[in-house]
Nucleic acid binder design. Structure first.
Lengths: 138, 138
DNA sequence: ATATAATTGAAAATGATTTTCAATATCACT
DNA sequence: AGTGATATTGAAAATCATTTTCAATTATAT
């Protein structure tokens, strides 16, 4: 269960284990959809009603720092977060249900090298996101 | 000169040609860096001091509608705009000076098909951005 | 020249995020 | 188990980006 690993990692990094953090981690660690801070807030308060929105922001910030979640950029906005993959992975988003799938992008290296050659840039990082319909929705 | 084409296109689409629009278009049509609304505002007021920030937002909205500019997503934020390329193109951003270069991404089709096969998604759209150092900065 | 409707800038409203702060809760050390 | 230092909390206020409202102005077809 990802939740316990995440909580352990928070603790290993000197952060205390609190009700607010537990509640936030429980919602986002197992979600297959990208969630905005307010969505996390609403969902997490069902288990932990005292939760404040500010603590959601603060916890998300720490989870992002630790590489456990990543921000998802979409046409409607860029506030949502989803768990991050191990190593370098890319996002595939279902435009209908919002389901998020991670996939490897090693095959891109070739392509990126060719762009570097053509443009003269030294390329250090890349962002790739695919949008479409998942198996259920298509 | 891109400026005049953009202004003509605005007019062809039923929009009036005003000082505010001219000023905004002049700044963004020839920029090689992505600019935020406030950056456009500050730069455009040097030529047209009466300009209001609201008109910058409204003009950017129309330029985006017409496909002349596109929003640029970056780690520091997603409010900046740069001129769009013809057809489907991708962005290459210099992390140092902010210079933006467009490049073709036709070569990606193969890769995207393989992701579709592996994941079961029907893929309709993709976003790709590369970050690095341009020839001058590296 | 004139009339009409689009456009303007200022101000207010909204929405997202951050900061401040006094109260509380976690955890290391007994 | 109890205690103390300090990290963390939620609420309220502050900030920043964006949108809406509105009366005044301006572009353009006639």
């Amino acid at each position: 269960m990802a939740v316990n690993n995440w909580l352990a990692l928070l603790q290993e990094n000197g952060y205390r284990l609190t009700g607010a953090r537990r509640a936030v981690v429980e919602i986002i660690a197992d979600s297959h959809r990208a969630l905005t801070p307010v969505e996390v807030y609403d969902a997490a308060r069902e288990q932990y009603p005292a939760l404040g929105l500010v603590s959601v922001y603060r916890t998300l910030e720490k989870l992002e720092e630790l590489g456990l979640i990543q921000r998802v950029h979409q046409p409607q906005g860029c506030q949502a977060f989803i768990k991050a993959g191990k190593g370098h992975q890319h996002l595939l988003l279902c435009s209908k249900c919002g389901r998020t799938t991670l996939f490897d992008g090693d095959d891109l290296d070739q392509f990126i090298k060719s762009v570097a050659r053509k443009t003269g840039y030294q390329i250090n990082e890349h962002w790739l996101q695919l949008f479409g319909l998942c198996e259920n929705c298509k």
